[in-house]
Every structure is written in C-alpha cells, then in structure tokens.
Simulated assay, not measured.
Amino acid sequence: MSGRERTRWHGAALVVAVTVAASAVLQLVAVPSAPLFGSLFGGMAHALTSRTPLELPAPAFRVAQAMIGVIIGASVSLPALTRMGSDAVAIALVTAGTIGVSLIAGRMLAVRRDVSPVTGAFAMIAGGASGVVAVAHDLGADDRVVTVVQYLRVLIVLVTLPVVTAVVFRPEHGLGLLPTADAPLLPSLAYVALALLLGLLLARLVPVTTAVLLGPFLVGAVLSQSGWLGTVAVPTALEWLAYAAIGVQVGLRFTRESVASIARMLPAVIAVIAAMIAVNAAMGAALARLTPVDGLTAYLATTPGGLFAVLATAADTGADVTYVMAVQLVRLVVILATLPLLARWLRRGARADET
C-alpha cells in the first residue's frame, strides 16, 4: 500500500505497532522516558510515509498534558523543600544561574535561521523535560526540535553522570537506597482521578497556557503530601499512556524537511549541551562553597536533567538525597511557572529585532 492509500485506521495501527515495539526496545536499553521516545517514533513512522492526516484528539492530548502535571506533583516532597532552610538564598541564586545559562544556550541555538528564540530557549531549558515538551507547541515553540534536544540533553546527562561521579568524587557505593513505598492501586487511581479533575477545573479558571499542567501539578502535590489518601503514586501504565500520547502528537508533526533540519543541527546541539553540563558543574562547586553540603551532593543537585537517575545516584553514593531533590524540585517548579512569561518575552524580543 502506498503512502497515499493508507487509511486513518491503517495509520493508527502502524503508530501503535511501532510505538509498542520501539518502547520495548528502548526500555531494555534503559533509555529515559522510553514510552515517549517510542511513541515519537510511532508518530513519525506514519507522518514520514503517508499524506493521510492523523492527529491525537484535542481532549486526549489535554488529558495527557494534565497527567504529566500529576506525575510531577506526585514526586514533590514537602520534607525535602522545608529542609533547605538557611540555604534558600544560595539555592535561589544557583536556580537563577541555571535558568540564565539555559537561556544563553538557547540563544546560541537560535542563531540558526531554522530555530526561533522561543524554540531555542525551550529546547535548552534545564529541568522538567516532560513538562516543557508537553506545552512547547501551545507556547509557540517547535515541539519537534524541543523534544529531540530536551531528551538528548537528558540522555547525555545520564551517560556522563556515573563517569563524573566515579572519576571526580570517587564515592563509596551502596551507601543508601532511594526511599520507596508501596502504593495501593485503588487509592492511587483515586489520587489520579481527583488530581486530574480538580486540576483541570483549576486550569479553566486561570488564563495561563501552562495551567493545564500546573493545575494538576498543584492539586497532585497537595493530595500526595496531605496523606489524605494514604501512600499514593501514579500507576506505571498511566504514566506510559501519558508519555505515549505526548510523543505520538509530536511525532505526527514531523516532516522529512524537519528531520533533515534537526539532523543538521545535532553537532552544534551536542556541543552546547556539553558546555551547559560543565557550567552547571561549576555552579555545583559554587553551591558547595556557599553552603555546608558536600561537593557530590551539590553537583547532583545542579545537574541539568535526569531527576530520578540523579536521585538514585545520590542514594547509592551516600549523597544527601533530600537536599538533591529539594534543589531539583525548586528549579522544576520555577521553570514550569515561568514558561508562559518567558515565551511572551522571547516573542516580543524577536519582533523587536525584525523591526
């Protein structure tokens, strides 16, 4: 069957088949957010081989965006945030510095004619990759570029993390375990349903594009920390469905021209990401000097991405897991809250440059 003759049903079947197969393979080789990448390939498999229009229904994509907020909200730790105490000023400075470095990196990427300032900034912003990808298109960025670059950064961080940790800090291993708790299914499903429902209702009251993500995030964080439903977590299957919906929607927007354009910019992107990691490591060294925390804890706290791998590394090497989580979560919340303002500011600046 040629690309012209493919029906929507055949296209949907192809997307699902490629998504399942690719996700399984990526999961086996420990690629971060395997369902998102697998579904990205699934969407691309149809978009690049057929002219038949296919897209995720708008309500389904909105629920997927909201689910990303719920997932992030479930990871919030109130004890971790309150633990910062007297280090709040230093952490705020490091957070601002990390965002500033991200914007500079994004501006460097936007030197290319095929990358807008908004796309460059969103592609390079350090932290909250899934949240940034989920709202990138709504805020005027090219979500195809944003998705590839964001998760390339996460992948590079994950690859370099054990090397830097072992070579520079030489910690002992097996010193701790990442805190986990069994979450019963029914309370967890109730948590997801309430966070989605109340979060989306809250989003309708707030005229901000990212409210569809921030509303469920806030409700989810409050519910998970209140203990009202007991120990809760987002079931893995629902996480995968949310990531898959985001990935499919992005993948279906790809064209052969966009693939070629992204491939051409990869060498520059890798160089900029490497520079970002180095600068963030320097900020970690500064944090260690300004606060009582050790160098390894400060380095892990300022790593630009890969939150759960960073927390696992912190636990395994004896670093302060609570402190690492607090710094990473502060940056994540600040980024998600300021994305609409950032997009507006960058678009205004781009228009001023054109006139």
Results as ranks from 00 to 15, higher is better:
His137Ser: 15
Asp138Thr: 11
Gly140Leu: 04
Gly140Glu: 06
Gly140Lys: 03
Asp142Pro: 01
Asp143Ser: 12
Asp143Gly: 03
Asp143Val: 03
Asp143Tyr: 03
Asp143Gln: 08
Arg144His: 04
Arg144Val: 03
Val145Ser: 11
Val145Glu: 09
Val146Pro: 08
Val146Tyr: 07
Val146Ala: 13
Thr147Asp: 00
Thr147Pro: 00
Val148Glu: 10
Val148Tyr: 06
Val148His: 07
Val149Cys: 08
Gln150Asn: 07
Tyr151Gly: 03
Tyr151Lys: 04
Tyr151Pro: 01
Leu152Gln: 05
Ile156Pro: 03
Val157Tyr: 00
Val159Arg: 04
Thr160Val: 15
Leu161Phe: 11
Leu161Gln: 10
Pro162Glu: 12
Val163Lys: 05
Val163Thr: 08
Val163Pro: 05
Val164Leu: 13
Val164Met: 12
Ala166Thr: 09
Val167Ile: 12
Val167Asp: 08
Val168Ile: 08
Phe169Gly: 03
Phe169Arg: 03
Arg170Cys: 07
Arg170Gly: 10
Arg170Trp: 06
Pro171Ser: 04
Pro171Thr: 01
Pro171Asp: 02
Pro171Asn: 00
Glu172Ile: 09
Glu172Ala: 13
Glu172Gly: 13
His173Thr: 13
His173Ala: 13
His173Lys: 12
Gly174Gln: 02
Gly174Thr: 00
Gly174Tyr: 03
Gly174Ala: 02
Gly174Lys: 00
Leu175Met: 12
Leu177Ser: 14
Leu177Phe: 10
Leu178Trp: 06
Thr180Lys: 12
Thr180Leu: 14
Ala181Arg: 14
Ala181Ser: 14
Ala181His: 14
Ala181Gly: 14
Asp182Lys: 07
Leu185Gly: 05
Leu185Arg: 02
Leu185Ala: 07
Leu186Cys: 13
Leu186Arg: 14
Ser188Cys: 11
Leu189Ser: 13
Ala190Val: 14
Ala190Cys: 12
Val192Cys: 07
Leu194Ser: 14
Leu194Ala: 15
Ala195Cys: 07
Ala195Pro: 02
Leu196Pro: 01
Leu196Ile: 01
Leu197Asp: 06
Leu197Arg: 04
Leu198Thr: 10
Gly199His: 01
Gly199Gln: 03
Leu200Trp: 00
Leu200Arg: 00
Ala203Thr: 05
Arg204Asn: 06
Val206Ile: 15
Val206Met: 06
Val208Asp: 12
Val208Leu: 15
Thr209Pro: 15
Thr209Lys: 15
Thr210Pro: 02
Ala211Asn: 06
Val212Tyr: 01
Val212Trp: 04
Val212Thr: 10
Val212Phe: 03
Gly215Leu: 00
Gly215Cys: 04
Pro216Val: 09
Phe217Leu: 15
Leu218Gln: 02
Leu218Asn: 01
Leu218Phe: 08
Val219Thr: 09
Ala221Phe: 11
Val222Phe: 09
Leu223Ile: 09
Leu223Thr: 06
Ser224Gln: 11
Ser224His: 11
Ser224Ala: 15
Gln225Met: 10
Gly227Arg: 06
Thr231Leu: 07
Thr231Asp: 12
Ala233His: 00
Val234Lys: 04
Val234Asn: 06
Pro235His: 02
Pro235Ile: 01
Thr236Phe: 14
Leu238Arg: 07
Trp240Phe: 15
